[in-house]
Write a protein that binds this DNA or RNA. Sequence first.
DNA 1: AATCTACGTCAAGATTTTGTCAAGAAAATT
DNA 2: AATTTTCTTGACAAAATCTTGACGTAGATT
Lengths: 231, 231
Amino acid sequence: MAESKPLILVVEDETPIRRFLKMTLVDHGFDFAEAVNGKEGLMFVASRRPDLLILDLGLPDIDGLTVTRELREWSNVPIIILSARGQEKDKVEALDSGADDYLTKPFGIAELLARIRVALRHGEKLTQGIADTVFVFGEITTDLVKRQITRGGEEIHLTPIEYKLLTILIKHSGKVVTHNLLLKETWGAGYQQETHYLRVYMAQLRRKLERDSAHPMHLITEPGIGYRLRS
Amino acid sequence: MAESKPLILVVEDETPIRRFLKMTLVDHGFDFAEAVNGKEGLMFVASRRPDLLILDLGLPDIDGLTVTRELREWSNVPIIILSARGQEKDKVEALDSGADDYLTKPFGIAELLARIRVALRHGEKLTQGIADTVFVFGEITTDLVKRQITRGGEEIHLTPIEYKLLTILIKHSGKVVTHNLLLKETWGAGYQQETHYLRVYMAQLRRKLERDSAHPMHLITEPGIGYRLRS
DNA sequence: AATCTACGTCAAGATTTTGTCAAGAAAATT
DNA sequence: AATTTTCTTGACAAAATCTTGACGTAGATT
């Protein structure tokens, strides 16, 4: 990435716009890749790790906002949203979902390019997200893209909160994650005293993931501090 | 910054807008600071290191673009530009000068706040760096990020107080740390006579960390003064 | 040798923190 | 509207940690 041309992935279902973006981007010295729907986009990011994502909000399969949120669970790739809708609440929602910028159609090419440069500037300094979207510990395999957990081939169903907690622990794999952080990330600020929630959910995760939940090998308690994922 | 409120500096010469921003920002849980011209703004950033800069382009002394460029020579504090001019070339120029975002007046409060959150998100991730946090003495390895102690590869479990004491000793590695300081840092003021606590916990640390706890190689007693970590 | 002082050792409660279970409320799905 | 799933909450058990006191040790002082 440092020396070669930055790779930009455009996720856009309308062919004319995609063509136009391709022309413009290639013209200005970027490597171009395209996806016509959300699922394709997610998989592309997982496998090819582009330097920037240009994402249309109105996709045929998954909503652009959902794509953004799912991506943010394991990737820090800069995201610029393109949308026909210019309502303030649309922008706020997109930005709060994890997007880095939001442009309303029609937009100027020069501005788009400038905002791309800004986003790439950020991307350089950012730490990439999780190294691999498939994370393995013990007999457990987690696929962050498919959102699928398996244990010895058997699929394990996790509730949204269980899944969220697990992904946080994976993101900090090996490190101790404080009660505070887990609570804030999962329930939001204002729940930082509810450590009882953590006890209940860690118990459930252990029951689902650990061979012997009374003597966990991976979901480790650090009394007084938090929890830790050991692989 | 991690725990306290983010500090936002507003550089804006028009009093009504400044007042309005102050109200809005304080209302939404930010620390607010202000400067009425570019020179003041630059000096403030240099001395107080705000987490974010909101910068009006039309300043009485230095041009906002110039402020941005000068700032970028020694700081990467996120900058959001506010401007009455919405021409594309103005935006491009500002963004290419080093600004992170550009809003045209009049702007919506909700959008501004959302873009502030984006910028702060970037700022956070920039600083989280590579700090070498592994400290080694003898056969003991301490990783202060993972909060993990190993002895010859074996994981050693420390209780919160044990860990706290050890980190204090590491922070002052080689030097003598007084009873007083250890007690104050660990139990808080008001426990500075309870030196017995230290004896109990230093004994426990030695039992866990030293090869022969009766003849410690690293956790050294300085009679009458305190303790010292020798590596 | 006796005494004193500062520190080390050990272990028994007391206290705090964590784990477990289950029932009812809330939310999502059908 | 009914059903299923998920979340929240409380009571209680279990475990880990902290506090406390009794006693031991070593060296210095008399």
